[in-house]
């Protein structure tokens, strides 16, 4: 485990030294700040509005961060051949993948914490209470972000970064659709569409911003189940990514 942790910290430092991550975080905070300003233009229930759109913003932020963080890590390593001396001697491919993933996951977690605190500050500045469920809701969004990170890593082993981003966004969108909604995309082949949809993850599991914004209580058991589901899917994606990575030649 020590090699993986060391490599994860190396990845973390690398990502923090690249300025793009700071750019994405600043964009998230500006977006949250903007959401805090809109209610003053006359929309009622502004607390609900801020919370609802703020959590939505965090979700989109998690998606953008996952793409921004991970889509270029392996292709850059391969292009610049920095992966060779690492894989050749100190690390196995599995350790490389886990190290890179954990490093990116830490950055994603830190960004989500910053976003959550930003949302809290905006709520308080506008004179609204911060619902206790906001924290587990952010945790679920983080789990969703980690899952997306695993998806981006999976795509990065067999596609180029320009293709990785739209593929991930597409997966993110269709994974929100119900089976019937997915079939409507191509109603000519309902059986095929149903089969395809059932293979995709169910990201609506992570969506609790609406009930939270409406002041409803989410059972604790549901949070645990959703976290377990998200982590299991993440582990599955990473396993498939590792199998693909192991089958690749490093030319």
């Amino acid at each position: 485990m020590k090699p993986v942790i060391t490599f994860a910290l190396m990845t973390l430092r690398n990502l923090l030294r690249r300025r793009t991550i700071w750019g994405i975080c600043i964009v998230i905070l500006i977006a949250l700040f903007g959401i805090g300003q809109i209610p003053s233009y006359g929309v009622s229930n502004e607390g609900r509005f801020i919370l609802d759109f703020g959590l939505f913003g965090l979700e989109i932020g998690a998606l953008l961060l996952a793409i921004g963080l991970a889509s270029n890590i392996y292709p850059r390593d391969r292009e610049q051949k920095t992966v060779m001396p690492i894989i050749a001697v100190p690390l196995s491919r599995g350790q490389y993948l886990m190290g890179r993933f954990i490093g990116a996951a830490i950055v994603e977690a830190a960004a989500m914490i910053v976003g959550c605190i930003g949302l809290m500050v905006i709520l308080l500045m506008n004179g609204h209470a911060v619902p206790a469920d906001m924290f587990p809701a952010t945790l679920l969004l983080l789990i969703e972000g980690w899952f997306l990170l695993a998806v981006v890593f999976f795509f990065s082993f067999w596609t180029s970064p320009p293709l990785n981003a739209p593929l991930t966004v597409l997966l993110f969108i269709v994974s929100q659709l119900s089976v019937s909604g997915f079939i409507k995309l191509f109603p000519q082949a309902p059986g095929l569409m149903r089969a395809l949809r059932l293979l995709l993850p169910h990201m609506d599991v992570f969506h609790i911003k609406d009930p939270i914004a409406h002041g409803m209580n989410i059972p604790g058991l549901y949070f645990l189940l959703a976290i377990f589901y998200g982590l299991a899917y993440m582990a599955f994606m990473l396993s498939v990514a590792l199998v693909v990575f192991r089958s690749r030649d490093l030319k």
Binding site: T6, L9, V89, P90
Partner: peptide
Amino acid sequence: DYDDLFTPLEFMTMFSSMR
């Protein structure tokens, strides 16, 4: 070609830990 944002000493430290 190593990650150009690191120094030789940082590399030595990280590689020794990874090994």
